[in-house]
Design a protein around this nucleic acid. Sequence first.
RNA 1: GUGAUUGUAGCUCAGUUGGUUAGAGCGCCAGGUUGUGGCCCUGGAGGCCGGGGGUUCGAGUCCCCUCAUUCACCCCA
Length: 430
Amino acid sequence: MPQYQAVKGTRDIFPDEAAQWKYVEGAVHTLASLYGFSEIRTPVFEYTELFQRGIGATTDIVGKEMFSFLPDPNGRSITLRPEMTAGVMRAALQKNLLSLAPVHKLYYISELFRKERPQAGRQRQFSQFGAELLGVSSPVAVAEVITLMMQVFESLGLTGLNLRINSLGDTADRLRYREALQLYFAPFHDQLDDSSKERLEKNPLRILDSKNPAIQDIIAGAPRLYDYLSTSSVEEFEKVLFYLSERGIAYSVDHRLVRGLDYYCHTAFEVTSSELGAQDALGGGGRYDGLARELGNSQDLPAAGFAVGMERLLITMEKQGLFAALIPHAPLVYVVLQEQELLDHGMQIAFRLRKAGIKTEIDLAARSMKAQMREANKMRASYALFIGKEEEQSGLYALKNLVTSEQSTLSLEAVLDILREPAQRELLKS
RNA sequence: GUGAUUGUAGCUCAGUUGGUUAGAGCGCCAGGUUGUGGCCCUGGAGGCCGGGGGUUCGAGUCCCCUCAUUCACCCCA
């Protein structure tokens, strides 16, 4: 066992896997841009109060999962961001973005931190990609955001996902419903588990989220939030569903979907994958018009967004075999040295090739020719360029096509001429 | 934070009721004649058997503690 290993809940991403990340990130960038979203990058840590206010003091994230610390004895507590929305909203308010233009569409791919016990699909450092649409207070915004998210999944080839959606209504709706819930659960108080009892006081909606089998029957009989929605809230929700249907996006309405963060209102949604095990949420989001005011803004700021767990996305793709076509970028030519003394000359040749845009490998460890050839083969290099004493003096090199095994003796200029064209093709592919 | 699980070579794992110098496959390195890969063959390097303590003539195998892993709960991406 090595003396040092990666901190609990963190992991290293080695080249093979990094290629998968790059591929997925590329799809995110491309599609976000296609929908007119621009990238935003915010600091990894923020003042702790931002999350306490923004996410909600009663949530598990704020209550027990934040990495918080004091930068100096008299400083304000800061926290490694456990999610992105609060930080993005803070940035938007700080810059007064909405005064520059009425609508802003932002997306990100960022690292987040939560102090949870790791398990499948859950780490202490993880990353999400997500989008926030600011300034539009209508079902249009939610529909737009969901559509982008689903198109990312689709373009990556994911199948078998389940999109669930619900309406949480506006503040007034929820207030009325909250009372109704408390009234309903009161007689069952003694049968509830501890966390549900606590939620009954602080945030009764979240009792509906409970997976505790012992209280499922009680939950099943609870009044439905949907029945407490105002006419306008219902209309709004129906409009979102209409947009989704129109775009061929399959969904199922789930009246018990609440989601853990306090700032959601109206539409909330979640995408799950059966490929994921217990932590099956691939992504989720909703509307959060009230977040800005919660963060001290004088008024609400219409906003909708989603976040998708990158690790979970990668896990699902791996399980569905969606990385099979991802082949490592092989070198076009491998410079093979007859003996170690030729390394200087070999490196000079490699440099010339690389300058010409030709992906070139050379064995810096100066191993045997056999080893060099074996490695060239393993890397799937297309050509081997042999350098021996003769070549060094004559300036004529032996270029071997490793696929056809044909070999010819050429000047460096001739070699460049031959390799330039396939190098161009490789460049276009990558 | 709670519960369970597993810790033997770089990786995947064998290691019989405790009994000699701890094994395999893959990977890695080097060879299979004089400057040339893939397949094949040969050889080699590499393990305080997670750590500590205990039982025993004897522990990779049994007991205790500890650290770590994985999975699940809570909750979330």
